[in-house]
């Protein structure tokens, strides 16, 4: 498969064209906005937390295939996870897309997110893949301000 084929895998294109949990979340206890000035990608992430567990999570915004699919798959991967699991998953995901070996003790199974491994060949697109995750991180930390990738 070509490098581009590695990047734009079917699962990614599917989540781009049919993003899951793409809505405003009524009763969200946390939300944050993310922005990538390089390509104009914008995302708002909503999360409903109960007892340290992500009960529900959604997003809205506009962006490229990579950022939209990443946001969509983030929401499907995190529903029902604890905050600690969510942060650990983000750390593993970040190592995956930046091409670092994932041997850390807190390593968690990436499952379907492994489809983003091709990103590491496209360093300029790492920001696209991590925008929603950084935004979620800010929402969970209650930073409240807009996250920028620059």
């Amino acid at each position: 498969m070509s490098d581009v084929g590695q990047l734009y895998q079917e699962v990614i294109l599917d989540h781009y064209k049919r993003p899951r949990n793409f809505r405003k979340l009524d009763g969200a206890s946390r939300n944050a906005e993310g922005y990538n000035p390089l390509c104009g990608d914008k995302v708002t992430v909503y999360a409903k937390l109960e007892d340290g567990v992500v009960r529900d999570i959604s997003f809205q915004g506009s962006g490229c295939a990579i950022s939209t699919a990443s946001a969509s798959m983030m929401t499907t991967s995190l529903k029902g996870r604890t905050l600690a699991e969510a942060e650990a998953l983000f750390a593993s995901f970040h190592r995956l897309v930046t091409g670092q070996p994932d041997t850390a003790p807190g390593r968690v199974e990436l499952g379907k997110l492994a489809v983003f491994s091709g990103i590491s060949e496209f360093p300029i697109r790492v920001k696209c893949a991590t925008l929603a995750w950084h935004t979620l991180h800010a929402a969970l930390e209650r930073k409240g301000q807009t996250v920028s990738t620059e």
Partner: peptide
């Protein structure tokens, strides 16, 4: 249609074609 400029740019780059994608400093 339905394809972000950034994705267009990445795929064209694989073909050796260098274009600019984004807001071109003219938001």
């Amino acid at each position: 249609d339905d394809i972000h400029a950034h994705d267009v740019g990445t795929i064209l780059d694989e073909e050796g074609v260098a274009i600019r994608t984004g807001h071109h400093c003219a938001m």
